[in-house]
Design a protein around this nucleic acid. Structure first.
Lengths: 213, 213
DNA sequence: AACTATTTGTGAATAAATTCACGACATTTT
DNA sequence: AAAATGTCGTGAATTTATTCACAAATAGTT
């Protein structure tokens, strides 16, 4: 894989760049400098240029970057032409929020089915996405490789095991638990309570500037 | 502020450690080694020891760490004795998920009020938390310093400005926008679409191990 | 055509975070 | 009481990420 040389920190910013570039195109802008983009995405302009440079010379000195060209380039790099199908596990408030969120706009990912342990929900649809009972997981999952996990804490471990058994290799985990998965499965954690606490900690211990009158 | 010397990466892990230590206590464990904790939180044991060491010598050689002592220490360090009040802006599915989430269990943060632009929702409660109309923001906010932003993209900028005007200094931002705030306001972004895309990108470009039969 | 203003791409410097590896000490076992 | 084992705390090495700063090139201007 040639893209092994791209730093992880850079890779994480790519989707962000992509979205803001899409916005710019929609606004009719055909050119952008690293400085302008920097102000929009709040990433240092040198970092942006460095990030882009891992993919070669995408810009032009004295001019900046051509929005259309950059978008085309990243569309390929981010595989935006092929849709990645995603399953959502746990149709509570958080899960429902995801289903309503229109991921496919500006995106290459789409939630195509959801599961819940509540028999009441099974059989219904949200935004056209079918909800199955969790017992049907093995039957319905097919060759989906990515799952969003928004179940309550108690069910986490057993569901995770079943997902892995069915061939899931990527999990976006919103539960507070740390998942036990084989090493070939990638898990990204988004821990809402931790994020909130960390923010509060930073506010108290890392004041940015003395607030002025 | 003496804790200026603690690396940010360490600070972000503290709430995580705290939660897992609480779990251990609940399980009746009175002692834990960095190796055991490492397996639970999925952080390298050397990193854990390094993190703890910024606060002094909290453990005992040949023994490990005393769970109770560690918890007591972090309770003070993380200001777990004082409750930080938080306002939530935008009572959609995502916002509702937060309100149902019991942040105060094992936590020092509490959502004490919510706002929404939907007049229907104003006046009601979720989990005992009052929901006000967004027009009442200035009137009701009081001296709350932290806000969770879960509004649709269109309202983001104007709401942010009003929050800052009212003295908010920390924002947990779930909208896709990058906020324009004075430099003394700390914003943490959680960008759901970006997280999902980044996961997909890593799966394709950074395979962890060839999946074995 | 000459001049000025921009802006990239990157080598080098710096900063931040992780990981190695081991001496020192405490605990446990025999 | 001695030996064996376990575990911390940390100096040093390494890795990863960011930022500086400037030559080179282009674009725009007069």
């Amino acid at each position: 894989m040639e893209s092994n040389k791209i730093p992880q920190a850079t890779a994480k910013r790519l989707p962000l760049y992509y979205r803001f570039l899409s916005n710019l195109r929609q606004q009719g802008k055909s050119r952008v400098s690293s400085k302008e983009l920097s102000e929009a995405v709040k990433v240092d302009s040198a970092t942006i240029r460095r990030d882009f440079s891992y993919f070669g010379a995408l810009g032009k000195k004295g001019y900046g970057y051509n929005v259309e060209y950059l978008l085309g380039f990243f569309r390929k790099t981010l595989d935006h032409d092929e849709l990645t199908e995603v399953a959502l596990i746990g149709v509570g408030n958080l899960g429902t929020a995801f289903m309503n969120y229109n991921f496919t706009k500006n995106n290459n990912t789409k939630i195509v089915m959801a599961f819940d342990s509540d028999a009441e929900k099974a059989g219904s649809h949200i935004e056209g996405i079918p909800i199955y009972h969790i017992d049907e997981l093995e039957e319905k999952l097919g060759d989906i490789k990515v799952a969003i996990l928004t179940v309550p804490g108690t069910e986490t471990d057993s569901v995770t095991e079943r997902l892995v058994d069915q061939g899931i290799t990527g999990i976006l985990n919103f539960t507070p638990a740390r998942l036990n998965v084989p090493e070939y499965v990638r898990v990204h954690h988004i821990d809402l309570a931790v994020e909130l606490q960390a923010l509060v900690y930073f506010l108290k211990h890392y004041p940015l500037v003395a607030e002025e009158s």
